[in-house]
């Protein structure tokens, strides 16, 4: 709870600060007119901080501020802050020109310096206000440094993430793809790991060395089920395709066709199962999409990667690579 006295002095400090700022900021006013306000603002701060006012301008800033407020001003700046206070006191206490017209006016800091000085003073008034509300300077400092640290840590983390971009590491995929240059799965295949069997090559070949027509492809993976599941399997292809589960053809789409769908619903027991897809492209457009549904409410979709295991690149065409 702020005492009425403290409240009044804080109000006075804010008013003097605003007046000083208005006069310094106004291009039409000589900054010297702001000096009495500046002096009174500092006196309010000193009263709030130390409970007493220094003699004149004091020797150092420590004469104006208690150690806990002094800590808020960096040690290297304290000298210049005190120099401005000294100038302000000197001007405020200077006899008017008609009293001693002969003496030269004391030198004033530049307007920019005065403005930054006013900002420092503003921070002090705020700190004193917060102290009056129960927040010690240490807590204030900790809060300030906490926010700064959060910005730095956040910025550094963002920078590192953007530099490394871990989300762009290539997913190697759990399907082993073998692409043959003939429609009869003959010849030296191009082997690749694929994340999914979802291709729409149109009139191009699947790889640089495979022709766009009359080629074949075979994909193998291991499907891992944690419980017995009714699975809906579907192939949408142009042209021929078929899907094998544990060595048995479950979706036979081997008749020559343009883009068409074929599917089956099969009960698959818990465990690891070998899934193979074979495809032959005859002429014109080429595409194949393999989807599966493991829940009667969800439409068939590409099989999630976490349900698949990669069978390895070197597999025997007739053996079960998932055993």
């Amino acid at each position: 709870m702020i005492t009425p006295d403290t409240e009044r002095v804080l109000d006075a400090a804010a008013t003097e600060l605003r007046s000083a700022y208005t006069l310094v900021a106004d291009p039409q006013c000589d900054p010297v007119t702001a000096m009495p306000h500046l002096q009174r603002a500092w006196q309010a701060v000193a009263w709030l901080s130390r409970g007493e006012l220094p003699e004149g301008a004091g020797e150092t800033l420590a004469d104006w501020l208690a150690p806990e407020q002094l800590e808020l001003i960096p040690a290297k700046s304290r000298g210049s802050v005190h120099a401005v206070i000294a100038a302000a006191c000197q001007h405020a206490g200077e006899p008017p020109p008609w009293v001693n017209a002969g003496s030269p006016p004391p030198e004033l800091p530049a307007a920019k310096l005065l403005l930054s000085h006013l900002r420092v003073l503003g921070q002090l008034v705020r700190a004193l206000e917060l102290r009056a509300r129960g927040r010690t300077p240490k807590v204030q400092l900790a809060a300030r440094w906490g926010v700064r640290a959060a910005w730095w840590v956040g910025g550094a983390t963002a920078f590192v993430l953007l530099a490394l971009r871990p989300w762009q590491t290539e997913d190697e995929g759990s399907w082993r793809g073998a692409y043959y240059p003939t429609p009869a799965f003959e010849g030296e295949p191009d082997l690749r790991r694929e994340a999914d069997v979802a291709f729409d090559w149109r009139k191009r070949g699947p790889t640089d060395s495979i022709p766009s027509d009359r080629f074949s492809a075979r994909w193998d993976t291991c499907l891992v089920l944690e419980e017995d599941t009714e699975v809906g399997l579907q192939i949408v292809s142009d042209s021929r395709s078929r899907l094998w589960l544990n060595g048995e053809v479950v979706v036979d789409h081997w008749k020559q066709h343009q883009r068409a769908a074929k599917g089956a619903r099969v009960s698959v027991p818990e465990g690891t199962h070998h899934l193979r897809v074979e495809y032959v492209e005859d002429v014109a457009n080429a595409s194949i999409h393999v989807t599966a549904s493991f829940d009667e409410d969800e439409t068939p979709a590409p099989i999630p990667a976490d349900m698949l295991e990669f069978p390895g690149m070197e597999i025997d065409a007739d053996a079960d690579p998932c055993e």
């Binding site: 804080l10 403005l115 008034v125």
Partner: peptide, 9 residues
């Protein structure tokens, strides 16, 4: 406190 806008918190 901002000297440009010295609002008492």
């Amino acid at each position: 406190m901002n000297p440009e806008l010295p609002r008492r918190p």
